[in-house]
Design a protein around this nucleic acid. Structure first.
Lengths: 183, 183
DNA sequence: CCCCTGACTATGAGAAACCATAGTCAGAAC
DNA sequence: GTTCTGACTATGGTTTCTCATAGTCAGGGG
């Protein structure tokens, strides 16, 4: 089964380990957390709303205006993100105004910070005009932000030192075989 | 339903600096690099194809099977990603087979590594079953990978120390005013 | 030469995302 | 009460994304 390929020079990718080495032995759905993430924030509108929340926008009217999305889309997205626990509604009241809600990121939502930074960084890479656009920086030292990948041991991990494997190998193997037998 | 008193200062977000402090003074389009990134990889299919490329898939047939996408979508996505400089076509030939092309990430494409890690990490946060799914780890020490945000000075930057500002403030201000005058 | 295989393409149809417009509805102001 | 404002909702249409099916096309094998 393992047929060796003509090595396409140095193409570094993420190394597959363990039972996941045979990637085709695993169904396409439900085994990668990236899919799960895309289910929640995989649309353009979700990302734009989240961006504005990170930029400090909190109110419905702000969010529609600053994302350029239509009201219906923003309302629907906020409802979905609220249901997914990414944004939280907070009542507020300004003098002489009625009580309203504003939207802020939950802890879950703030967990998207590295995603935002990574996307912005990639946007830099594929941008053609270095003079335009906004830039994320460290509040104090003003140096630009960049995403880094580290492991639990504290090592900086470049792409060619990364690997991917199944989490609880016995557990998921049993799950897979059971669902196969059912067919 | 049980908490009153909204204190807006407890909500940490990215601080806006300089001319961007008045965020409404800037058009919604063209000033954020995240948008640019989303133009290239903002669809589900693009992300899934890129994931499989990172996981070591290189061939058309592999990519369709492992993403679960239809052939037409994968072909179209590969064409677009090729046009955007994210994937590269490499000819190869197996014994007794005709010459074919395989697809590998370019440097630009590999720049998406932090995005992949960040999305996978977020997928973890919003996942409910810690025993299933795949896990990104350091190839040697097997410790799980996580994205970190650092500034150019090497400081670790949490969300509440991040800021956003315009890149070349004079330049983009001039651009904006000119395009406004044209209207 | 014809056949076969695997990488693509073409087409049509359905779903999802999105927009623009026109509403509804709660509550503070009057 | 009546008005008004701003947060939403409802409707319909357009675009984009995606799938399923059925092709085409190149080239190696016979």
């Amino acid at each position: 089964m393992d047929h060796e390929r003509p090595d396409p020079t140095t193409t570094d990718v993420i190394e597959r380990q363990g039972a996941f080495e045979d990637r085709d032995a695993w169904p396409v759905k439900g085994y990668c957390r990236i899919e799960r993430a895309l289910d929640l924030v995989g649309t353009r509108s979700a990302m734009l709303v989240i961006r504005e929340l990170f930029y400090g926008g909190t109110r419905y009217e702000e969010l529609t205006r600053r994302t350029g999305l239509s009201e219906a889309v923003v309302a629907g997205r906020l409802k979905q993100l609220h249901g997914d626990g990414i944004v939280e509604r907070r009542p507020y009241q300004e003098a002489g105004q009625r009580r309203r809600d504003e939207y802020v990121l939950t802890d879950r939502g703030r967990a998207l910070f590295p995603v935002i930074v990574a996307l912005a960084e990639f946007g830099d890479v594929v941008s053609d005009d270095p003079r335009t656009g906004v830039q994320l920086v460290h509040r104090n030292c003003e140096a630009p932000l960049a995403p880094h990948v580290r492991c639990g041991e504290g090592h900086e991990v470049p792409l060619d030192q990364a690997a991917v494997r199944l989490r609880d190998e016995e557990h998921v193997t049993a799950l897979r075989d059971r669902s196969r037998a059912q067919r």
